Simulated scan of single mutants.
Amino acid sequence: MLRRGKGIELKSTGEIQAMRAAGLVVARALAAVTAKAQPGVSTGELDAVAEQVIRDAGAVPSFKGYQGFPASICASLNERVVHGIPSRHEVLAEGDLLSVDCGAILDGWHGDSAVTIGVGPISERDQKLSDATRESMWAGIEQVRAGNRLSDISHAVESSARASAAADGIDYGIIEEYGGHGIGSEMHMAPFLPNLGKPGRGPKLKVGMAIAVEPMLTLGSADTVELDDEWTVVTTDGSRASHWEHTVAITEDGPWVLTQPED
């Protein structure tokens, strides 16, 4: 039965399994969006694809209507970091870098995941940026284990991003204002998970917790600004950004990535 530990929701095995079902819906929606994201396709069309997959599964898009957000996905193109609003008038072009965040509610439980998609051939720097962001997410996921502290995840994300920066010869910006979060019976719950920090700090992680790990990196400054639509967040210097995310549960056997596709 759902309960709370120091403000952080703890789930039973059955409730985690229910979250896995929601996570698989999100995984299928993102797979469909990734396949559709080609030059000439609008971000509004991608939004429709995701919503159809979610509703066909008997689930509800968790983003649509959330605090007034008008769509089922966040579609953040190029210099947009997060919370981009999809539009039928925004058409993808070859070389674009598109981050897509998607959430679904199934039987009262949430799944939340994000991917960065290269539209046609993309530049080597953009590919390295996406790869570095994804690798930092997986480094963080490895620390989503009972007995660790929350900031162990943050430190792993930061360390991976800095290692990639050194290897790639690119000074990646690590976004500080936005990060991961607890998830379960609601989409955004305690704790907030920064994407950088020293290890060994914050609440101790326990079996039954679920956390969305979501690093965001840029090819330049980590400074951001919110546009007048009160949603879209962009880099202040116009540099491109990447965003990857998975919902992860803590089990007796370690991290269970609930939004990972079955294959």
Rank of each mutant, 00 (worst) to 15 (best):
V115A: 04
I73T: 01
R88S: 12
R125W: 03
A27W: 06
G254I: 03
T218G: 03
E79N: 12
Y172R: 05
A165T: 12
A71Q: 02
V207Q: 12
S72H: 04
Y172V: 04
K204P: 00
L150H: 07
Q38Y: 07
E9N: 03
V207P: 02
I141M: 09
A156S: 13
V115K: 07
S76H: 02
V33D: 13
A59Y: 08
L92H: 06
V81M: 03
A210S: 14
L196D: 12
D152Q: 05
V100T: 01
D223C: 00
L196A: 15
H246V: 11
S154T: 07
A241Q: 08
R125L: 07
H83S: 08
A241H: 09
T224W: 02
D263V: 01
D112S: 11
I153E: 04
R80A: 14
G169S: 09
S42T: 13
M189V: 00
I85F: 01
G44C: 10
V33K: 02
R88N: 11
R3K: 14
S164D: 07
A210C: 15
L10A: 10
A210T: 12
S242L: 01
G5C: 04
K64G: 02
A161G: 04
A161V: 08
H83D: 12
I73G: 01
W109T: 10
V233W: 01
C74V: 02
W231L: 01
G118R: 02
M1Q: 13
T43Q: 08
E135P: 00
E262C: 00
G23P: 05
I105K: 15
V81I: 10
V100M: 06
